[in-house]
Nucleic acid binder design. Structure first.
Length: 575
RNA sequence: GCGCCUGUAGCUCAGAUGGAUAGAGCGGUUGCCUCCGGAGCAACAGGUCGGGGGUUCGAAUCCCUCCAGGCGUACCA
């Protein structure tokens, strides 16, 4: 089947849409919940956490672009083993009281998240060297869960301080949240107990009286071996000492996400972002203005691919409890981890073993204290970008130089973390991440600035000019001949590409793949840069043709701006 | 062992629902600033799409099989 576009009609329609004279997206029913970041609050964030946050943030922006109501949650595992480990470090290695830990937190000369980063590595070494010390972890974890004594006090100070650090780190790259859900609240409000009772009632879990799992509550998974036999596929939900595993708590959390638990949190405002958004925190006391959180129609959990099995267990639990529809609406947004290139690991001061030197990458390890800290990376990027700004003499004002440098650095980082498909493992390398040329964020920003400069320059001679008026100035009758034939082909190709933003967003969402929109942005920028030197707008003598060129550039410029907004990349005034 | 993922140019990666001479960035070689600012553009070199079978008019894409690598299969998360 052959068919032809009415080029003029499409261009006209596209212009109206891109110039905001027609609503871009219809609002859609239901609420979509995106959970991302969810870093253990026991040490500084690293590059892997940034990948999680950027993927989750772009995905949420994609959904909002399509007109969905989206709620972004960040889960705080403040009663988990990792927090317990740092607590062990403070109590037993450093012999500090909770008051002394608080002094550390309040000391402006100390980066508390970096301090904990090192302490966590020390604790892990201590466990390796003293096997008996592992008992301290179990003991401490139980005390934290039961909110008893110094352990609970230290854990609370640590996790609260680290969460604030994480939020500040993420804000540097334009990542915001709607709600922080604390695991301690899930326990305190007996969310777990409610889920536990229900699972027992339905028979989704059973108590083991003998065998290797004696004393545990376990869930049987379909597939694998037969019930009761040695090779039965079983997952422990409640440990023999009565504490709940991560999966158990996650099952309760996910039931709540869908509004299936029959219980709810209380909320209090925690922080107001510079842009006005309020970040809420689950809390003991309720707040009258609290929005109705949860009750989502679709849930996306951005969690690395190594946790696929655990996420499958959560979905299996929902099904076992009869919530088949919810299980089908629970999406594990799985992505590969970020490791380090051997060269990068060495630059960070890590000594490689001969085998590690042979490999293409070195695994990041919080326990070894090996990883690229998020803030260090951003500092490096900002320094390099600011230096570029200085050398290009964009402005002499040091404050502006830094502001531009920051915007460009964050653009580079966000694009770098978005351009890979989520299934590929990234071996982080300074050379690639610090690049500002080629397929990078700054290339996109530069292109957007280029396009805008045409209008800025044009307005110098035509102060009353409003690009949105171009729509009336150039109707379909004028557009028809301009798009026709060989001479119109370049214009048509660029316009047709600009018309595909919605398609790219759609494809990005159905595949849960932010890289599709990132690649689209690059392709659009590349096409515009190719067009740019061939059609000089400002020196065009024919007024009608000049108006047409402005029309095309405006459509592309607006499309690129909207695409960058979806990617969370800001466009500087100059570049 | 079982489950999931990956293998495309020297390097890093795109190629969704099978469609024409397999694309981009980096790196290499070579051109292009009397400027809407070159963080750019153009050109050249570079690929038996891990191997082998099969389905199809047509396969990087679907199926089978083998090889190589990764991850998971914890009373850690």
């Amino acid at each position: 089947m052959n068919f032809h576009f009415d080029r003029a009609a499409l261009a006209s329609e596209l212009f109206r849409r891109r110039s905001g004279q027609q609503a871009a997206a219809v609002s859609r029913p239901g609420k979509l919940l995106v959970e991302h970041t969810s870093i253990n609050p026991n040490k500084a964030a690293h590059i892997g956490h940034l990948r999680n946050a950027v993927l989750g943030d772009v995905f949420a922006r994609l959904l909002r672009f399509r007109g969905h109501s989206v709620e972004i949650q960040n889960y705080i595992d403040n009663t988990g083993v990792q927090v317990a480990d740092v607590t062990v470090g403070f109590l037993y290695l450093e012999r500090k009281t909770s008051a002394e830990v608080q002094v550390l937190v309040d000391d402006p000369g100390i980066r508390f998240d970096y301090y904990c980063w090192d302490l966590y590595a020390r604790v892990s070494r201590h466990y390796d060297e003293n096997k008996s010390a592992v008992a301290l972890r179990t003991e401490t974890l139980k005390a934290i869960e039961e909110r008893q004594g110094e352990a609970a006090a230290v854990a609370k100070i640590v996790s609260t301080a680290i969460v604030k650090k994480h939020l500040a780190t993420m804000l540097r790259l334009n990542v915001e949240y709607d709600l922080l859900v604390e695991e301690s609240e899930i326990l305190r409000l007996d969310f777990w107990k409610a889920a536990f009772e229900e699972m027992k009632r339905i028979g989704a879990i059973r108590y083991e009286t003998e065998g290797k799992n004696a004393g545990c509550w376990v869930m049987s998974l379909d597939g694998g071996g037969r019930a009761g036999e040695e090779n039965e596929d079983v997952k422990i939900i409640v440990r023999s000492n009565g504490t709940v595993t991560y999966v158990g708590k996650d099952i309760a959390y996910h039931l709540w996400k869908f509004g299936l638990l029959g219980k709810d949190f209380n909320y209090a405002p925690f922080y107001q972002y510079p842009g006005g958004r309020i970040l809420w925190l689950t809390s003991a006391e309720g707040h009258a203005d609290a929005l109705a959180f949860g009750h989502a129609s679709q849930v996306y959990s951005v969690i690395d691919t190594r946790q696929s099995y655990l996420q499958a267990v959560v979905a299996a639990a929902l099904r076992a409890m009869g919530h088949r529809e919810a299980a089908a609406h629970l999406h594990h947004f799985a992505y590969e981890v970020v490791s380090l290139s051997p060269a990068c690991a060495e630059e960070l001061g890590y000594e490689l073993s001969p085998e590690e030197r042979e490999q293409n990458y070195v695994e990041v390890s919080g326990r070894k204290g090996l990883g690229m800290k998020a803030d260090d990376l951003m500092d490096m990027l900002i320094e390099k970008a600011t230096e570029e700004v200085r050398s290009r003499r964009m402005t002499d004002d040091p404050g502006e130089q830094l502001a531009y440098g920051r915007m460009i650095a964050i653009g580079a980082l966000r694009y770098f973390l978005s351009k890979f498909s989520r299934r590929v493992a990234i071996a982080f390398d300074f050379k690639d991440a610090l690049a500002f040329e080629g397929e990078t964020g700054p290339y996109l920003q530069y292109t957007a600035v280029r396009a805008r400069n045409i209008f800025r320059k044009y307005a110098e001679t035509q102060p009353a000019f409003d690009p949105r008026s171009l729509g009336e100035k150039i109707g379909k009758t004028q557009l028809g001949p301009l798009f026709a034939g060989q001479s119109g082909l370049a214009f048509w190709q660029l316009t047709a590409l600009a018309a595909q933003l919605e398609l790219a967003v759609e494809e990005s969402i159905t595949n849960a793949e932010p890289s599709i929109v990132a690649k689209y942005a690059f392709r659009l920028a590349q096409n515009f840069n190719n067009f740019y030197p061939h059609y000089h707008v400002l020196s065009e003598p024919d007024p009608e043709r000049q108006a047409f060129l402005l029309f095309i550039v405006f459509v592309v410029s607006q499309t690129l701006a909207q695409t960058l907004d979806v990617l969370g990349i800001e466009i500087p005034e100059r570049m």
